[in-house]
């Protein structure tokens, strides 16, 4: 009896890491489904509302604009069953999406899945470097500022963060290009290949992210150092370092990590703009190009991938918070 009680108490006080995992993963799974449906539906509406005959457009994409005649368009029409009613076409469109059959790019002719495979690596690389850089810049600066709220470092970092938040990533990137590439000539302005190409786009994204995360970290630090448990840890005799490591770090980290979920919106949106600015061969750049070229399968593929990436990153944050904060594991 005692053993059972002890175990029950034990599990209540320190829930296992696996406890309540379903509550974290299920909504995210739903969200992923929603993203697929939303992107699929919007691109389907796009195929139906673009001006001009759909069969001619696809035939022109396949065979080149000079090679299209009525017969070729008819062949495409019967092959893809473009003359069926909208509802039927919509259902089969979603069916294709469900089987991950994203079709072929109208511009390059290659299967969209293959193209996405190339692009994803570049985008993930850029996003990872930017995120890492922002975590190195933002939270440490915020923590240092939060140790002395109202001090010189706090004021300066706040002013810089406000300025950076007012500068959208593309304007910031533009200024960095003008400074480091055009005026100083230290770094390549755009392109991809050498590691030097990483610096400016990653820095642009990282500064935009760090502007927010440094303030979140600062507020979290002020909150924690003003709390009763933190004061108690000091009065019971722990040194400044130990009480920060044992009682501060986790509680400070929680809002910073949780806020990453919000920041991923900035990251994904930033990737679209920054990749275009720096001619980075990733999904964001490809999405913009696909929209300009009216390449529907590519629009669907890239938007879908970015949406799913967003969901995946958020799931990562949820899981990390789940591991960090035992309160979340409580039933």
């Amino acid at each position: 009896m005692d053993a059972i009680n002890a175990r029950r108490f034990g599990s209540r006080r320190f829930p296992a890491l696996g406890a309540g995992l379903g509550r974290v993963l299920l909504p995210r799974l739903l969200q992923a489904g929603l993203v697929a449906w939303l992107v699929g539906t919007l691109t389907f509406v796009l195929t139906r509302t673009l001006p001009g005959d759909m069969a001619y457009r696809i035939a022109a994409g396949r065979y080149g604009h000079d090679m299209v005649d009525g017969a070729a368009a008819e062949a495409v029409r019967t092959e893809l069953a473009l003359d069926q009613p909208a509802l039927l076409a919509y259902l089969s469109w979603l069916g294709d999406l469900l089987r991950l059959d994203l079709g072929r790019s109208l511009v390059s002719g290659a299967p969209v899945i293959e193209e996405l495979g190339h692009l994803l690596g570049h985008s993930l690389g850029l996003a990872a470097v930017a995120l890492l850089l922002s975590l190195l810049l933002g939270p440490p600066l915020g923590l240092a500022a939060g140790l002395r709220p109202g001090g010189a470092l706090d004021r300066v970092s706040e002013a810089v963060a406000s300025l950076l938040r007012a500068l959208p990533p593309f304007a910031l990137g533009l200024l960095l290009i003008l400074l480091f590439s055009v005026s100083l000539g230290w770094l390549p302005a755009a392109g991809h290949g050498r590691s030097a190409h990483f610096v400016l786009p990653a820095l642009t994204l990282a500064l935009a992210l760090a502007a927010v995360s440094s303030r979140v970290a600062r507020h979290a630090m002020v909150e924690v150092s003003g709390s009763a448990y933190y004061a108690f840890s000091r009065t019971k005799g722990l040194g400044e370092r130990l009480s920060f490591l044992r009682h501060g770090l986790r509680n400070v980290a929680l809002p910073i990590v949780a806020y990453l979920g919000v920041q991923f919106v900035t990251l994904i949106e930033g990737v679209v703009v920054v990749e275009t600015l720096f001619a980075w061969p990733g999904i964001g750049h490809a999405l913009v190009h696909a929209i300009v070229a009216r390449d529907l399968p590519m629009i669907q593929g890239t938007a879908l991938l970015m949406g799913l990436l967003f969901v995946a990153l958020n799931t990562g944050v949820d899981l990390f918070c789940h591991g960090l904060d035992p309160r979340r594991r409580q039933p």
Binding site: Q31, E269, V311
Partner: peptide, 8 residues
Amino acid sequence: LALPGLLL
């Protein structure tokens, strides 16, 4: 909210 705003 499922998609990042700018994407929508």
